[in-house]
Simulated scan of single mutants.
Amino acid sequence: MLNRVIQQFKLHIQSINEVEDSHSSTVYKCNLPKGETVFVKIPYTKLKFQRELEAYEILRGRVSIPELLDVWPGDGECPGAFLLSELKGKPLIPDTSHTVAYQVGVLQAGMHSVQPPVGKELTGIKNEFTDWSNFIERQFYSFAADVKDVLDSRLYEQAITKFEKIKGQLPSPDGPSFVHMDFRPANIIVDGDKVSGIIDFESVRFGSTEIDFTKLYRDYLSFDSDLYKSYQEGYNSVRPLIDLEIVLPFYQFTDAFNSIGWCKRRGIEKHAVFLEKNLSLLKGFLQ
């Protein structure tokens, strides 16, 4: 399939490497003869392809993202592929400057400022905002069958009871906004003290911003209160940040639960470390 995609894009490749930490598509970093670097991305499904394509159309010129150089709509065997420019830098790490944290806040707030386009019919990106509570519930219970096979029955029932108890305590949703659904350090590219942009849009929706802070807080903001403050200042410079202390506990709990189900679907042995991390988090939330 990769060779067919390369032929479609008429690429002359000097070297090629598969990119790690891509969970909803296969991504290849391609070095071209004149020193240029591009990325070939093949989503796992047609829906993920369509979401990503619409995201590039909606975000272009509004949020810093890779340039979409070419698109192949695919065929009966391949759901489609993208040829993307390189964002200079490396994925975000916890050990960064306050300047970077501020820019991460600006980047995310800029994305959250994007609302559903008027007069444009979308076939990939759904607007879940008007039925947000039911969307969260559907997500949770879609993973519940998988989680049930992993947890002991007592822990599983505790998790279900907790979800039912706290889901109605959330404030009114904040939106409708473009939400990434996987806004984590691996998808935020940083070059020195400059945030280059964001990548990967296979899971995006229009919905409430509250769902988009959990992974960023878990993997970046929670390590340093000063960085967290700089991030908040950056976000607030673009749009008001919701009270994260109210919503984070709920979404941290549901993210740990859903992540356990994700590990079951994708392979427990392959994702054993991530599974154990989320099992530990879930047990902590249930104590």
Rank of each mutant, 00 (worst) to 15 (best):
F223K: 10
F223V: 09
F223L: 07
F223G: 04
D224H: 09
D224A: 10
D224S: 13
S225L: 14
S225F: 10
S225C: 09
D226N: 09
D226G: 04
D226L: 09
D226V: 11
D226S: 11
D226K: 10
D226P: 01
L227S: 00
L227W: 01
L227T: 00
Y228I: 00
K229Q: 15
K229R: 15
K229L: 10
K229G: 04
K229N: 11
S230D: 07
S230L: 00
S230F: 02
Y231K: 05
Y231E: 01
Q232V: 08
Q232E: 12
Q232T: 11
E233C: 02
E233N: 09
E233Q: 14
E233I: 03
E233S: 07
G234S: 09
G234E: 04
G234K: 03
Y235R: 05
Y235V: 03
N236Y: 01
N236E: 08
N236A: 02
N236C: 04
N236D: 07
S237Y: 01
S237R: 05
S237A: 12
S237L: 03
V238E: 05
V238W: 02
V238Q: 09
V238A: 06
R239K: 15
R239W: 00
R239M: 09
P240E: 00
P240Q: 01
P240N: 01
L241M: 14
L241E: 00
I242C: 11
I242W: 06
I242T: 11
I242R: 11
I242G: 10
I242Y: 11
I242E: 11
I242H: 11
D243K: 08
D243G: 05
D243F: 06
L244T: 10
L244P: 10
E245M: 06
E245C: 06
E245D: 14
E245W: 04
E245I: 01
I246V: 15
I246E: 13
I246N: 12
I246R: 15
I246D: 07
V247P: 13
V247E: 14
L248I: 06
L248R: 12
L248E: 07
P249D: 15
P249S: 14
P249Y: 08
P249E: 15
F250L: 13
F250H: 13
F250R: 13
F250T: 09
Y251A: 06
Y251F: 15
Q252W: 05
Q252F: 09
F253A: 02
F253N: 01
F253E: 02
T254Q: 10
T254L: 10
D255G: 04
D255R: 08
A256I: 00
A256V: 03
A256H: 04
